[in-house]
Amino acid sequence: MTALLEVRDLVTAYGKIEALKGVNLDVQQGSITCLLGPNGAGKTTLMMTIAGILRPRIGSIRFAGEEIAGRPPHAIVAGGAALVPENRLVFPNMTVLDNLHAGAYQRKDDFASDIERLFTRFPRLKERSTQLAGTLSGGEQQMLAVARALMSRPKLLLMDEPSLGLAPLVVEEIFRIITQLHQDGVSIFLVEQNAHMALKVAQHFYLMEQGKVTFSGTPGALAEDEVIRRAYLGSARA
């Protein structure tokens, strides 16, 4: 396997406060890689930096062999990486269908068949295709956010806390979809608070604490309990 995404010595700051203090990690082609860590560890900052919403101060982000650090978000989507942001962020005053069209904004080819395929995968969205996205339930909005990101046909899907605030049944549904997408060949980089679920689907994981990667490994190894504890509570050194 080769690394699809390589993050090296990445520093992102809000004013003088460094949220990322030199992050290093890889996402292998065709894998589900999971990023765990307590609140405030910098996970969302990392996702927003990879997606181009935040500009890194120093460091490198190589995606599919190209340096993308500091590029604008639309260029990164064009390159094949799409972020499903934290808290869904759908377009609330637009219909479900328009949300999907917006996801395909950069595509010049015909994407009608993609919409049909997504509607088969997410039948609820088909039922509600003419409804305003803001009227959907939290779980439906999450499905829509995933579907919108898939409309750009990404090689890498970045997902920031897709299970946040959702009912357990819906969380299971989300993870079922993540596994399906992975089987369809999409590489996935997943940020999750729900460490138990995430470690079930991931092939590789990183633990992030206070702006740095402090541990990485393969699920099933002995250290797992310790990692889960630290993902929820932060390390004792903190």
Partner: peptide, 20 residues
């Protein structure tokens, strides 16, 4: 479509690949 998206949720519009 882009104009409505930017009006509705600017960050989401950027993430959808719109050159805001």
């Amino acid at each position: 479509l882009a104009l409505r998206a930017v009006t509705d949720a600017p960050v989401a519009a950027q993430l959808a690949g719109i050159n805001v």
